[in-house]
């Protein structure tokens, strides 16, 4: 009996000794891009996970109780901010019972801090305008420059939460920014021939991308944010696109392809499915790959050489 107990103790100690060391910070985010940036900045000291996969609409993440479980022991929560996650995060955060990451706590980060926000509504904000965001357009992560700001912000937060590795976080953020700058030069070169070109998007989530690369947004397939288009509106938009010579419609994987393709077909244009979030489509697992694919898809569509059926 004694030998059995001894061998059991030895086995348990052996198992404990073989348990891999865990990261210093557990980070959760409400957007896959933010998890990608957090992982670059945190390196081996951070495990970052997004509650919203890149192929899901960040407005409409089901507030499943399992998400609350997933962040129960998180050290840092990074919210997209500007109310992009207002439809689900206010249930998930309190549901986690994790005091460290509640809004206002040291572990809660609003990633939009420091971003120059576009399309801030002026005057009265009313439901008659659809599901608009009163704090401004929250899709800032479609501009590579804005992710540099997020990286710098996260390095500061991680350093405060884990001072022992502060130098490493700062170095990682700097490396991220340098890589983003060199990549941006490549993407700007790819988009340069199309400066001033007009595109139609399903939802107003290309505003920052268009601003960075000099595109014009002709309109949206949604008549108002969050409102699906009627057949009459589809016809009207297609007709005005035809008259203006707009040749490209872009939409994310989580939107219904049908109205986008109908508009494109009637306007003699191309409808292209693109991802504005990391992991939205195969092959764009991190933010660099995302922009590689996004830029080449939009540039390809504008050149008329690739995209959906015309």
């Amino acid at each position: 009996m004694k030998s059995l107990i001894r061998s059991l103790c030895v086995s348990i100690l052996g198992l404990l000794a073989s348990v891999p060391s865990f990261a210093d910070l557990k980070v959760a985010t409400s957007l896959s891009d933010l998890a990608s940036v957090a992982q670059f900045v945190g390196g081996k000291h951070v495990t970052a996970q997004s509650l919203c996969p890149g192929y899901a609409d960040p407005h409409f993440v089901p507030a499943k109780p399992s998400l609350m479980n997933a962040i129960q022991h998180a050290d840092v929560f990074v919210s997209t901010g500007l109310e992009l996650d207002a439809g689900w995060l206010p249930l998930v955060l309190p549901g986690s019972r994790n005091p460290n990451i509640q809004q206002g706590a040291k572990g809660f980060v609003d990633a939009s801090d420091g971003i120059t926000v576009l399309e801030k509504p002026t005057g009265t904000v009313s439901r008659a305008e659809g599901d608009i965001h009163p704090l401004g357009n929250p899709h800032y992560y479609a501009d590579p420059k804005n992710l540099e700001i997020v990286a710098s912000h996260l390095a500061d937060v991680f350093s405060r939460r884990d001072p022992a590795n502060a130098a490493e976080y700062a170095a990682n953020a700097k490396a991220f920014q340098e890589r983003m700058e060199s990549s941006l030069a490549k993407w700007e070169k790819a988009m340069a021939p199309y400066k001033g070109a007009s595109i139609v998007t399903y939802h107003p989530n290309f505003v920052y991308f268009a601003d960075r690369f000099g595109l014009k947004l002709f309109g949206t397939v949604e008549p108002k944010p969050g409102i699906p288009p009627s057949p009459h509106y589809v016809n009207e938009l297609a007709e005005s696109m035809r008259k203006a010579g707009v040749k490209v419609v872009v939409y994310q994987p989580y939107y219904n392809a049908d109205p986008n393709e109908q508009v494109a077909k009637r306007a003699g244009a191309i409808a292209v499915e693109v991802a504005t979030e990391a992991g939205g489509l195969p092959g764009n697992d991190d933010v660099f790959a995302k922009f590689d694919v996004l830029v080449s898809s939009v540039a390809g569509a504008l050149s008329g050489k690739s995209g959906g059926a015309r």
């Binding site: 409409f60 089901p62 507030a63 499943k64 109780p65 109310e83 207002a86 439809g87 689900w88 995060l89 206010p90 249930l91 439901r127 599901d131």
Partner: peptide, 11 residues
């Protein structure tokens, strides 16, 4: 018809 702040969607 809901007026006011956009509420979170219960699961």
């Amino acid at each position: 018809y809901t007026i006011g702040y956009h509420p979170a969607h219960a699961y």
